[in-house]
Write a protein that binds this DNA or RNA. Structure first.
Lengths: 196, 196
DNA sequence: GTCTATAGAAGGATAGAC
DNA sequence: GTCTATCCTTCTATAGAC
C-alpha cells in the first residue's frame, strides 16, 4: 500500500536493506552477519530479504556495487588536472572524503575476506581501482608509490573505524588524514628513496 | 605414543594448531573459519581441537596471545633510545619486521571484527599497544601522530596481504614499508601541519 | 512486499571409547 | 591425544499463503 500510494519512494525497502546490511557488515563482518540479524534490525522477517536478493552473495554484491561509481568519480575528477602532483592531490582528497562519508563501504570492501573472495564478480571495481592507481603511480610503475597507495587506502579503512579517532571532530580528522596522504604520496623527483 | 617417546616436541600438537588456525583466520576471517576447516587442514577430527581449547573463543585468544610479547619487545627496544625521532624509528623498524614476519597475526588482530570484540579479554595487548603509542605520539598527545600511527599499522596489515605486493621480494618490500613509516611518522618541530 | 513454516546443511560443543 | 557419534543451535534458502 505504501508503494502504491507513493508514501514511500520506490525502492525504499531495498535502500533500507542496503543501509542496514552495509552497517552490520562493517561492524560484524559479512560472515558474522546473518540474514536474521539484518531482518531483525529492519524489523521484518528473514524471508522478506529474499524478495530483493536470491542469495546472500547477491545481497553483498548489491550492497557494495555503488562504490564503483564513487571510485570512478574520483578518477574522473583527478584526470581533470595536469601533472602528477595535482592528480595525486585530487585522489587523496577524494579518498579521504569517501572514507569519511562512506566508511562502511570502505571497511567492508578493503577488509572483509568474504567480500575479497567475491570481488572477481565485480570487474568494474577492479577496473576503477586500476585507473585510480594509474593516477597515483604513474606510467613508470613506481613500486614505492604503489606500496604507499595501498598503505594509505587500507590505512584509511582501518583507522577510521577504530575508537581513538572518535574523539576528533570530522573536520580535524579530515585534515589529519589528508596530511597522512600527502606525506605518503609525495611525488619524488628521482627514483631513490632517501635512505636513512 | 609420540609424546611419550619424545619423537615430537612437547606441545607440538598445540603449536601446529596455532599455526594452522592463525593461517586460516588470516585468510578467511575467524567467522569464516570453522573448527571443521581447521581440523581438516590438520588432518585430525574436530573433537581433537577441543582437547586443547574448551571453546572457539579460547582458541582465538590462545592464537593471538603471543603477539603481546612481540609488541612488548618492540616497546622495550624503542625505550633504549633517547629522543623521540630515534624511538619512532625503532617502532617503525619493529612494526615492519613484525608485519613481514608475522603478517597473519597482524591481519587477524587489526582487521577481524570477531577478534576486535574479544580484545577486552586480552588486556595485555591493549596495554602493550598504549605503551607503543606513547613512544610515537609523545607525552603531549599529538593528534596527527596518533592518526598517522593508526594509518601506518592498519596500512601495514591491509597492504601486506594484498596481491599486488606479492611480486616484490621481501627486502624491497621492507624498504618501501619502512619509507612509508618514515614519511608518516616524521616528528614535527611545531604543532601545525603545513596546511596546503 | 511481507509473512509463517520448514527443509537441509553446517556450526559449536559434549560424551565416552581407545 | 585422538577418535566416533551425537545434540542442539543457527544458518541459508524455498514453498506457499496473504
Amino acid at each position: 500500500m505504501a508503494t502504491a500510494a507513493g508514501v514511500r519512494p520506490r525502492g525504499a525497502g531495498r535502500a533500507q536493506l542496503h543501509e542496514v546490511a552495509l552497517r552490520l557488515f562493517a561492524r560484524d563482518g559479512v560472515e558474522g552477519t546473518s540474514l536474521q540479524d539484518i531482518a531483525d534490525d529492519m524489523g521484518v522477517s528473514k524471508a522478506a530479504i529474499y524478495y530483493h536478493y536470491k542469495t546472500k552473495d547477491e545481497l553483498v554484491l548489491g550492497v557494495i556495487a555503488p562504490l564503483v561509481d564513487q571510485l570512478c568519480e574520483i578518477v574522473r575528477d583527478a584526470r581533470q588536472y595536469r601533472g602528477r602532483q595535482a592528480r595525486v592531490e585530487a585522489v587523496i582528497n577524494g579518498m579521504v572524503r569517501l572514507a569519511l562519508d562512506s566508511h562502511s563501504w570502505f571497511t567492508v570492501v578493503l577488509v572483509d575476506p568474504y567480500v575479497v573472495r567475491l570481488l572477481p564478480e565485480l570487474p568494474g571495481l577492479r577496473q576503477a581501482w586500476d585507473q585510480l592507481g594509474e593516477q597515483v603511480i604513474g606510467p613508470d610503475g613506481d613500486n614505492l608509490m604503489a606500496v604507499a597507495l595501498l598503505v594509505f587506502v587500507t590505512g584509511l579503512a582501518g583507522s577510521i573505524s577504530k575508537p581513538p579517532l572518535d574523539a576528533l571532530d570530522n573536520a580535524q580528522l579530515r585534515g589529519y588524514l589528508t596530511e597522512c596522504g600527502r606525506r605518503l604520496l609525495k611525488v619524488r623527483r628521482r627514483s631513490a628513496p632517501h635512505a636513512g
